[in-house]
Design a protein around this nucleic acid. Structure first.
Lengths: 205, 205, 205, 205
DNA sequence: GATGAATGAGTTTTCATTCAT
DNA sequence: CATGAATGAAAACTCATTCAT
């Protein structure tokens, strides 16, 4: 309650608490799924009373939606890494440099679990589906932007690039799903073949 | 009403009722998810009392497991079609002939919804995960069998073939997931690029 | 279906099946209590279908009552042994000769469990209470008869003898209850003190 | 509304509500037994919703256990009376002065009903059995303490005293059970004979 | 006599949500 | 802002009982 703390805009502290809830809920959802995570548990994990949680979210559904909005598209991290990559090279070289990590991310049961949870929810809940769609479009645009900056393979126009990028995203989605069925897959072979498939998408017009 | 007549239909009728439950549950699960489908609803959809449903399944979990076991691997239909395909040609040609239909299947919200539901469940429920893993291994073996009969690309041994086939399965899994986010995707382009990716996996050693 | 079998009085075979149910129910009740034993389980234990069980008993309550009626008073076995005892001696000597066994019976968790189950039921269910009361009176009469034949302690009339005998029964009931709380009690000491208490009831007018 | 004022009543109120549940459950259990008393009924009797009852008890079993813990050993009241008895005299005289009341207590259907219910439960539920055992040991120790203070009969060591005290407890347990079968027994005669049995345990080494 | 499929009310328990403080 | 007591409508599951065969 120091003056400094009080001077902090109300909304800032509120936003912090809101994020606390989302972090707690994310952890719970990963471990137990949406339906396995009660408000009581989430609020306890967030260090707040169940009643107070409703100060920040209208209902449980709103938490799910907020998490869906916050949860990044699978390619987001890949794009970020490519954007920050100073080594250069053409698009394919830049991409393949980070495939290994992307494959690894899609083998992490925590990451994959929440993704599947969200996808399954989106299949039945159009509000969640729209949220995911929106964040997909955002990362899509960012990827294309970056590709245009770096230089896109000869013979591809922007529309075709967009299509091919979508297939890369599709491949990573698939890797996520398969990690459930085949959690001990051969990492090196997976990376090698994923790279090959990506190259096949970008190297020839 | 001879014993023979009576014995047969009795057990058959039980099996029929069991399948009735699974069909009803599948419908419910697609629409509402596992946790959104109450036993009351499922039993009503199956035309039976909730109590009686427990004659056929020990608990809700057992229904989920039975559905997981019944639900075919994504490649199963593809392999079946290739096996029945009389037009011949090498492995790649046979495969690509059916990619269009496979892409279409993975755009069907009903099919995809249940698949995601199962995958999300498997991420937290090892019993379901094992069931999916088992049926994956079965179709895997069948695919390899067929490929060996048809003739596998030069330079690939069986182990490498298996790895590549897994990537094809992965791709279809990815198509399923993306169909949620992007349900109106360009079918023709998707087929074209999927074929290209598959070819990249099988045409070069 | 041989003539001989058919000649058997219907009621005899029926009675046998009835007893089968009671035996099965007794076993179940001992292990799981009345409320823990479902008709399904009892009928399975009796080797008959649940539906058919209702051929012999109107409802579950009727089974409980039949078992209460069949279940002997705690003193019944003691009296039987005394009646068959050829060694002779006066009443006290005859009694004390069998106290050890009676104590042992009241330490058997199976015997005691059913007894308590019946007593607890009787406390809330007057039909069962009356049944227990009736069988108590029967054994009571038998004990007094035997005592009169053997010769009762000087100074006791029949009414007083009856009262004292009741206290002996009470003592055994108490031993049954305590065996739950103190299952590893010192058997020898228990017998010694029980004998002493019984002697105190019968040796002095 | 100072913190101190607020803190105290808060936790006290919770304890009060908890006791409300136990009181309500005790009443229900007496009348209908454990298994005949549904949570719905208990919560209604406690003036609270079924859901809220689970704020105070993890499950029905926990209520049973709490009642078992609260329910005093049969001798507890007797020992209390003897401790407060200012008239003095030796152990036997002190004891016999309160036998009448103890017999009466063991004729009260409410008291006896719950006791039998607990005993029957303990016969199949080791958690409950242990609780009863523990409270038995406590009162046991208190009885022996008191006896040592008052002076124990010549010729008895502490171990033997404990054994005999156990037989007194056994006798009262027996009186409880018999009160179900023979609710209209002759009170005076019962007291007279119970005293005699107790005296036989304590007057001669 | 005998079966076991079928019912539906009832059980314990959980949980999102509200509200007095 | 914050608590947590309180609700009541579900949920999964059980079971005595009935009845067509």
């Amino acid at each position: 309650m120091s003056p400094a703390q009080k001077a902090q805009p109300e909304s800032e502290r509120g936003e912090l608490r809101r994020q606390q809830v989302l972090d707690a809920a994310t952890t719970c959802f990963r471990r137990e799924g949406f339906h396995g995570s009660s408000i009581a548990r989430i609020s306890r994990a967030a260090g707040m009373s169940p009643g107070h949680l409703y100060h920040y979210f209208a209902n449980k559904e709103a938490i799910v939606e907020a998490i869906a909005a916050r949860e990044e598209n699978d390619l987001a991290e890949l794009v970020r890494q490519m954007e920050q990559d100073l080594e250069g090279g053409d698009l394919v070289r830049r991409l393949t440099r980070h495939v290994g990590e992307a494959v690894e991310r899609n083998n992490d049961p925590d990451h994959v679990g929440l993704m599947l949870e969200l996808a399954a929810e989106a299949a039945r809940n159009s509000a969640v589906a729209q949220i995911l769609r929106r964040s997909d479009r955002v990362i899509d645009a960012r990827f294309v932007d970056m590709a245009l900056r770096v230089g896109i393979p000869a013979g591809l126009d922007e529309a075709e690039l967009r299509l091919r990028m979508t297939m890369i995203a599709t491949l990573f989605n698939g890797l996520a799903m398969r990690s459930i069925i085949d959690p001990h897959r051969d990492h090196a072979a997976t990376v090698r073949l994923a790279e090959r498939m990506i190259r096949s998408l970008l190297e020839q017009p």
